[in-house]
Simulated assay, not measured.
Amino acid sequence: MGLWGVGCASQVPVVIRIPPPENPSVAEVRADVSHYMETQVRWGGTITAIQNGKSETSIEVISHQLDSEGRPKDYSQSEGRFIAKFKGFLDPAIYSVKQDLTIFGTVSGIETHSIGEFPYQFPVITVDSSYLWKPRSDYYSYERYNPWFYGPYPYYGNFYGYYGWPYGFWW
């Protein structure tokens, strides 16, 4: 494989990009968790809480639909929440609230926790693989998606060219 093949390779794991054959939704699993026990799922969403225990970390996630790469869609309807259980310690400074996370794992049960005063049943997933996405503000820059940009370098800025010179001012 030449340099072109290496540069185009995706860093997102295959199990995150491609869903398993049977991939029930969070709502389906909540409705009948006993039917889906030990089923592999690929789910994702936005982190709402993280809690480290002695030997594992639990991350609460608001689920969202996933795009073709497995990234949670920004404004999709949520089907509910789930808990992703990881072996070992995950740093809350890295896995922080409001970040997008996609997991691949196995349905291992259901836990009831309160959201405010409401008792909520969370499907629990034992995580085999995961991908923490870069914040969208880093991924989508103003310059790259500026609709008013016209020039020969559409992905390198809105007023200044690739080398920092204003367009139309070449010497």
Score class of each variant (00 low, 15 high):
Asn23His: 04
Asp74Lys: 15
Pro20Lys: 04
Lys134Gly: 00
Phe104Ile: 05
Tyr145Gly: 04
Tyr163Ala: 07
Gln77Trp: 06
Pro24Asp: 02
Ser58Asp: 08
Gly161Ile: 06
Ser78Cys: 10
His113Ser: 11
Val127Asn: 04
Glu56Tyr: 12
Thr39Glu: 08
Gln65Pro: 00
Tyr145Glu: 11
Asp100Leu: 14
Gly44Thr: 11
Gln121Glu: 12
Arg71Gly: 10
Val41Asn: 03
Lys134Ser: 01
Glu79Cys: 04
Lys98Ile: 10
Leu132Asn: 00
Glu38Arg: 12
Ile115Pro: 05
Pro24Asn: 06
Ser34Asp: 12
Ser96His: 07
Ile50Thr: 05
Gln99Ser: 05
Ile47Lys: 06
Thr48Cys: 12
Val127Ser: 05
Leu66Lys: 11
Ile83Ala: 00
Gly105Cys: 08
Ser58Glu: 07
Gly105Ala: 09
Phe159Thr: 07
Glu69Tyr: 12
His35Pro: 03
Glu60Ile: 15
Ser78His: 08
Phe118Ser: 14
Gly80Asp: 03
Thr102Cys: 04
Ile59Arg: 09
Gly116Ile: 07
Asp138Leu: 15
Val29Trp: 01
Gly151Arg: 05
Asp32Asn: 15
His35Leu: 13
Glu28Met: 10
Ser137Met: 11
Pro152Val: 03
Lys73Ser: 12
Phe104Asp: 04
Ile103Trp: 02
Met37Asn: 09
Gly70Lys: 11
Glu38Pro: 06
Pro123Thr: 06
Leu66Ser: 12
Val97Lys: 03
Ser137Arg: 15
Tyr145Phe: 10
Lys87Met: 08
Ile83Asp: 02
Gly151Tyr: 03
Leu90Val: 03
Gln99Leu: 15
Leu90Gln: 07
Thr102Phe: 01
Ser96Ala: 14
Gln77Val: 15
Gln77Phe: 06
Tyr142Val: 05
Gln99Val: 09
Pro152His: 02
Phe122Pro: 08
Glu28Phe: 02
Lys134Gln: 03
Thr57Gln: 00
Ser68Ile: 11
Phe82Thr: 12
Gln51Lys: 10
Ser34Ala: 13
Tyr162Cys: 12
Lys85Leu: 04
Gly45Val: 12
Asp100Lys: 15
Thr106Pro: 09
Glu111Ser: 14
Gly161Gln: 08
Gly80Cys: 03
His35Ala: 14
Glu117Leu: 12
Gln77Arg: 13
Phe149Asp: 06
Ser76Gln: 08
Tyr160Asn: 08
Ser141Met: 06
Glu143His: 07
Phe122Lys: 11
His64Val: 10
Asp91Trp: 01
Gly105Leu: 06
Pro19Ser: 11
Gly105Asn: 09
Lys54Glu: 00
Arg42Phe: 00
Val97Gly: 01
Gly161Cys: 12
Phe159Leu: 08
Tyr140Cys: 13
Pro21Lys: 02
Tyr36Thr: 10
Tyr156Leu: 10
Asp67Val: 14
Ser58Ala: 09
Pro123Ile: 09
Pro119Lys: 02
His113Cys: 05
